[in-house]
Measured scan of single mutants.
Amino acid sequence: SLEELLKLARHALRHGEEIHVLDRVITDEHEIKRLIEELERLI
């Protein structure tokens, strides 16, 4: 769900981890922040 993805993204950002989204691995902090902003808009 989007909520789950948002939780994962926030966790990854906090802990400096990578996040796997739709067969992509996002490691860049700015990309993760952008993902979080997009998800928050959708929810």
Rank of each mutant, 00 (worst) to 15 (best):
V25E: 04
I19D: 01
E29A: 15
L2N: 04
H20K: 15
E17P: 02
S1E: 13
L42M: 12
H20V: 15
A12M: 03
L8F: 07
I32T: 02
I19E: 00
R14M: 14
G16S: 07
E3V: 11
H30S: 13
L8P: 00
E17L: 15
K7E: 14
E29D: 07
S1R: 12
E29S: 14
E3M: 11
V21Y: 14
E38I: 13
L35H: 03
L5P: 00
D23A: 04
E29N: 09
E4K: 12
L13I: 08
E31D: 11
H30P: 07
I43L: 12
R14E: 15
H15I: 07
E17I: 15
E4W: 12
A12E: 00
L6Q: 01
R10M: 12
I43S: 02
H15E: 08
R34C: 06
R24E: 05
I43N: 02
S1N: 13
L39Y: 03
L6W: 03
R34H: 11
E40P: 00
L6A: 02
E18N: 10
I32F: 04
E37K: 12
L6E: 00
K33I: 14
L6D: 00
E29K: 14
R24I: 08
V25C: 04
H20E: 07
L39A: 01
I32V: 06
S1H: 13
D28R: 07
H15Q: 08
R41F: 09
L5E: 01
R34V: 11
A12Y: 02
E31W: 06
E4L: 12
A12L: 04
S1D: 15
T27M: 07
K7H: 08
R41Y: 09
R24M: 10
I19Q: 01
E37Y: 15
H20T: 13
K7Q: 11
I19H: 01
L39R: 00
T27I: 10
I32H: 01
E17F: 13
R41L: 08
E29P: 15
T27N: 11
I26Q: 01
K7W: 10
I43R: 03
R41K: 12
T27H: 10
V25K: 06
I19F: 12
L22W: 12
H30F: 12
L5S: 02
L39I: 10
K33Y: 11
R10H: 11
K33D: 04
L22D: 13
D23G: 14
E4P: 02
I26S: 02
I36K: 01
D23W: 03
R14Y: 14
L2H: 05
E3P: 04
R34N: 11
H15N: 13
H20W: 10
E31R: 05
V25W: 10
V21N: 03
H20F: 10
H11D: 10
G16V: 03
E17N: 11
R10G: 02
L42D: 03
E31F: 06
E17K: 15
R34Y: 09
H15G: 05
L35V: 06
E37F: 14
A9I: 12
L35D: 00
L13P: 00
K7N: 10
T27W: 08
L35W: 11
E38S: 11
E37R: 15
R10W: 13
E18V: 13
E17D: 07
E3N: 08
E29I: 14
I26T: 03
I26L: 12
L35I: 08
R41E: 06
L5G: 00
R10P: 00
L35F: 13
H30Y: 13
L39P: 00
I43E: 02
G16P: 03
L2T: 04
L35S: 00
D28T: 12
